[in-house]
Write a protein that binds this DNA or RNA. Structure first.
Length: 428
RNA sequence: GUGGACGUAGCUCAGCUGGUAGAGUCCCGGGUUGUGAUCCCGGUUGUCGUGGGUUCGAGUCCCAUCGUCCACCCCA
């Protein structure tokens, strides 16, 4: 054996044993998004590096140290997308879809960030992104949140809580930021190392510190909510009122900031206590200035991303993962003639009973082994074809999931006999 | 990028104070010359992550390295 090639750190295979959870999540989300009038869009996984620098912000962690960036043969700097919104907005601009138009879109696929992997955090991870462009809100804000709440219900996910906040307009945020920096500078001696670093780059994140010694200082700091501009305040009040009217529980977290620079006004995050340190399962917010910033017609927008791996983990914990689909019928063959005939027989059964899952014993093996395979395939019914049956023009049917006798059917009637045998098999 | 724990059969793991590897499971065969899941019997599988060092002797001790996991940080 030659040396094995190692997988890339933080990039995982999704094996058949786990894929049913992914498929359930994806198909449920797809269905629900269609019900809310969202259309799928597919955009490249690679974009020009500049797109992410301009959209996400030069001084965010994502852009500063987490992007997979390379120079291609033509000399362009390209980047594997670290998030989905920027690419979708770029696509709307590139295709001239913004002139007074509104779009409700979703998109899914892999994202890439070069971070140290841990529970719920991978270098290639998967998101479902939902974007509503051309709506100023707050009605669309509420509807999007309602959509997510409904999705959790459909998936059987329970251990999640909703946090919301408003960041105000960029202008209001700038004014608040100055006040905050002023406050933090005045107490510079009480800041820990992390916070001193953040003070320069992204001071709002200081409020997020988990260090208990910083708590008193943070609680006494100026609060963003008190510095909102009038319109943002009204927007946020309307959002809260509508959520209450819909009976969607939430808490206002004035320290909820979000890591990407493009957010404005509404931000929200669904978090869980069931997944360890990486507790955000779905988050997003309004990005009213983003499209203009990327050179498009100024257009308001809001969107969110949910982490597929994290949601799959929650579904697994909740026991909401379907078992892989089992075969309906496993065909056991014995003897040279029967083995050769078996291939034709199963193809004919597949013609006669489309949608049914037939598994033919492949690769030989004695009867004992074949029945063992039949059992492990999960099939409800075994069809037995030996040279003996073949000579008599029949096949034997044996139910595998309940105690019932074996029967025989003439080959021409076999499809009908299988249908009725399966119909009684599912009763138990 | 920083810290901690851990790397022994395909998988889950045992291996005490150093004496060159074991269980369960899986797979295959037999008990049943044509009947699974149970039971009984038998069989295959390891460069003990990798490289170096200490030692008469290293899975076991030391160093380095790679990898995995968890946490910090950050976020989905």
């Amino acid at each position: 054996m030659s040396e094995q090639i190692q997988p890339v750190r933080g990039m995982n295979d999704v094996l058949p044993a786990e894929i049913t959870a992914w498929q359930r999540l994806e198909s449920t989300a797809r269905q629900l998004l269609a019900e809310y009038g969202y259309q799928e869009i597919r955009v490249p996984m690679v974009e020009r590096t500049e797109l992410f620098q301009r959209a996400i912000g030069e001084y965010t962690d994502v852009v500063e140290k987490e992007m997979y960036t390379f120079v291609d043969q033509g000399g362009d700097s390209l980047t594997l997308r670290p998030e989905g919104t920027a690419g979708v907005m770029r696509a709307l601009i590139s295709n001239g879809l913004l002139r007074g138009q509104r779009h409700k879109l979703w998109c899914d696929g892999p994202m890439f960030r070069h971070e140290r992997p841990q529970k719920g955090r991978y270098r290639q991870f998967h998101q479902i992104d939902v974007e509503a462009v051309g709506f100023a809100g707050p009605d669309v804000d509420v509807e999007l949140i309602a959509l997510t709440a409904r999705l959790w219900r459909r998936l059987g996910i329970e251990r999640v809580r909703l946090q919301i906040n408003s960041l105000g307009t960029p202008e209001a945020r700038r004014i608040y930021r100055e006040k905050l920096v002023e406050y933090l500078r005045a107490h510079h001696d009480q800041l820990d190392a992390d916070s001193r670093r953040r003070l320069e780059g992204n001071p709002l994140r200081v409020l997020d510190s988990k260090n208990p010694e910083m708590r008193a200082l943070i609680e006494a700091a100026p609060v963003l909510t008190d510095h909102l501009d009038g319109e943002s305040r009204e927007h946020f009040a309307a959002l809260c009122a509508a959520l209450e009217a819909l009976g969607i529980p939430f808490s206002v977290n004035p320290r909820l900031v979000r890591g990407l620079d493009y957010y404005s006004r509404t931000v929200f995050e669904w978090i869980t206590d069931a997944l360890g340190a990486q507790d955000a399962v779905c988050s997003g917010g309004r990005y009213d200035g983003l499209i203009a910033q990327l050179g498009g017609e100024p257009t308001p927008g809001i969107g969110f991303a949910m982490g597929i791996e994290r949601l799959v983990a929650l579904m697994t914990q909740a026991g909401a993962v379907p078992a892989p689909a089992a075969a309906d019928v496993f065909v056991v063959v014995n003897g040279e003639r029967a083995a050769a005939y078996g291939l034709q027989l199963v193809e004919r059964l597949r013609d006669a009973l489309p949608g049914r899952r037939f598994e033919l014993n492949l690769g030989g093996g004695n009867f004992k082994a074949q029945f063992r395979r039949a059992d492990r395939s999960g099939a409800a019914l075994a069809v037995i074809l030996g040279d003996d049956e073949l000579a008599r023009g029949v096949a034997a049917l044996k139910p595998l999931r309940r105690d019932a006798g074996q029967s025989e059917s003439p080959l021409p009637d076999l499809a009908a006999a299988i249908q009725s045998a399966l119909a009684t098999a599912v009763e138990t």
